[in-house]
Design a protein around this nucleic acid. Structure first.
Lengths: 355, 355
DNA sequence: GTGAAAGCGCTAACAT
DNA sequence: ATGTTAGCGCTTTCAC
């Protein structure tokens, strides 16, 4: 069934049907009603391809998620604790605002091409990109796309530099400096001075920021950052386990550690426990993200909550503003985070009573 | 940039460009190469709308997820523990097989219309539907769609009855009867005779099946199903807490309970613990799904693993087979489940020593 | 206010 | 083997 048939049945022309369906002002109520009756009777819907070809929007947002994956985990995708909540939130708010959402996973730099292709095939009006590693492939893509783009977790300075002159980009980051400050402050106020860090991938902007701010805040407290206590976990459990095990075998431990995500914090806590080191009695641990797991594990994890739902909402709103040209070419948001105090931190043990 | 410009630059006609891009056989290698060079040089991509309008496939799958949501939880979507893993898995395998995936959430019967609309607007070639409640709205939709459809967790008998004569439907269920049998058998073999059930919504096929099989298996063991021990949790935490609290206040408890999903099992365990009833010492609990949370809580939950990834893979394969017309009009799969024995079950306490 | 007709970018049948 | 042409179903200018 096409609009022409509706037109015939309603005794009008295709143009009028189009006018009714697109809510044009100059259609008398009577005509509109007559047409709508036929449309409703036959459950008619406009053909999306024809509309788009004739110049309308697709009303579709592309959501591109960079997958962090653990080579040791065959079901690669499950490594991404942010994936679920964020997709849910974008789909939820997107659908609510009348958008269709195309979800796509990017596994490696080569896949970045898919983002550009999706735009060039005119499948989507705008895109949301999250979890990007800093690399040439994604930079090349960003520098070529002039459709509206929301980029979550990326260095704003770099975006400004590489974005095309006719580009429309909104960058959204969470306030990782504040988050990390609160982690360090919490431990310091409990009396810790030997504080370690479990880094994520620093090619991710948030990974870089958390690490960078850790150093800065430690310095501000006049505390040394000891190399032996700075582990590379790459946001991945298995890597974290290895690094923690290695540190334990070396025989010297900090009294507290901050992990750059909850996954690593949980993996570290498990590893310590397996070696008879108690959390928080022997070592305090702080996570980051406030994933579902954080409040489920024992002891419940002290962490920094990133409001994924809010970020997703903001991202969809930003898309809408850019698509409807209500916003300028470049906008930047920093979303506030919340320090969540639970049970994984305590005062440092006295030297003597430490295991 | 359109194919005509590519044609001009390559010194051929639009048709030839089209033939090259669609891998037609009768294009000499030389011509193909000449055209491809221009295409690569300009990063050209075909306009999807034009292709579809001219009769090609969209290469897009629609994934429709029915949202179970807790009225008491404002961020409604987070209630669905299956959402994350399943979306990830479908997007993952879908992308891998060359499909784009449109994800859509359905919150209420009215939203079912969206499924039909998405098809009628010709946005997708095929759909995957999961988490459906049995209601007239969805039945009406299923009875009208003649595009390929995969339905996960639905009564096959009903599908066969309502599907249109030109429909192509694949139904995928997990082997819930086997799963529930193993739950009951495990508890019985531990010595339990007073076993309770925390039901999910029985309007969901899996909810119905698990409840139904619980009764059957209990009967097979010659055990009574006591009404006071059968709680309605609707797959939701808050409802479960209420029901469990009520049962506790009544003063009589079973020695073990089987919950129809992990969320309810965890909520029940927490509620018992809050009332000083220990798991598994005082009461054994079994969950269902093997969600991420199941292995994170203390004690780790004995449960039935539903292989979501495998189901998603099967669903995408089924879509592909139907789209490419390699399969008949109706197919049904039952996916095997796995009983996961962890720490939430023990032998029943002696009458005397029970709290 | 409404209809006629051009055009969006592609595919495929037909012609050569 | 390749070019020509007629749609695909819609929107939108331009007449009336």
């Amino acid at each position: 069934m096409k609009s022409e048939e509706i037109a015939k049945l309603a005794g009008v022309s295709r143009s009028t049907v189009s006018r009714v369906l697109n809510n044009y002002a100059n259609v008398p109520e009577e005509t509109r009603k007559k047409v709508m009756e036929v449309i409703n009777k036959y459950d008619f819907e406009l053909n999306m391809s024809a509309r788009v070809l004739a110049g309308k929007r697709t009303d579709t947002i592309g959501l591109f998620l960079f997958s962090v994956y653990d080579q040791k985990n065959p079901q690669r995708i499950y490594g991404n604790s942010y994936f679920g909540p964020f997709v849910e939130a974008v789909v939820d708010t997107g659908n609510y605002k009348g958008y269709y959402v195309l979800v796509h996973t990017i596994y490696n730099p080569d896949d970045c091409r898919r983002i550009q292709q999706t735009f060039m095939q005119r499948r989507i009006d705008a895109g949301i990109i999250i979890g990007t590693e800093k690399n040439e492939a994604i930079k090349s893509v960003i520098s070529k796309i002039s459709n509206p783009l929301v980029i979550v977790d990326y260095d704003p300075a770099e975006i400004k530099q590489i974005m095309p002159s006719d580009g429309k980009i909104t960058v959204i980051n969470s306030d990782d400096r504040k988050g990390m400050d609160e982690c360090v402050d919490e431990l310091v106020s409990l009396g810790h001075r030997e504080i370690g860090l479990i880094e994520g991938r620093t090619t991710a902007y948030s990974g870089f920021l958390r690490k960078d701010e850790f150093r800065k805040r430690m310095a501000a407290h006049g505390l040394p950052v000891r190399k032996e206590y700075c582990l590379k976990g790459d946001f991945i459990r298995s890597k974290t386990e290895n690094a923690v095990t290695k540190m334990i075998k070396l025989g010297k431990l900090p009294t507290a550690m901050i992990a750059c995500n909850d996954d690593m914090a949980i993996a570290a806590a498990e590893t310590f426990r397996r070696h008879g080191i108690r959390v928080p009695e022997d070592i305090s641990i702080i996570g980051y993200d406030d994933s579902q797991a954080a409040s489920l594990v024992q002891p419940q994890l002290t962490t920094v909550r990133i409001p994924f739902y809010k970020i997703a909402q903001k991202a969809v709103e930003a898309v809408k503003d850019m698509v409807e040209e209500k916003s300028t070419c470049y906008i930047e948001y920093v979303i506030d985070v919340e320090f969540i105090r639970r049970k994984s931190c305590a005062e440092p043990a006295e030297k003597g009573e430490k295991t």
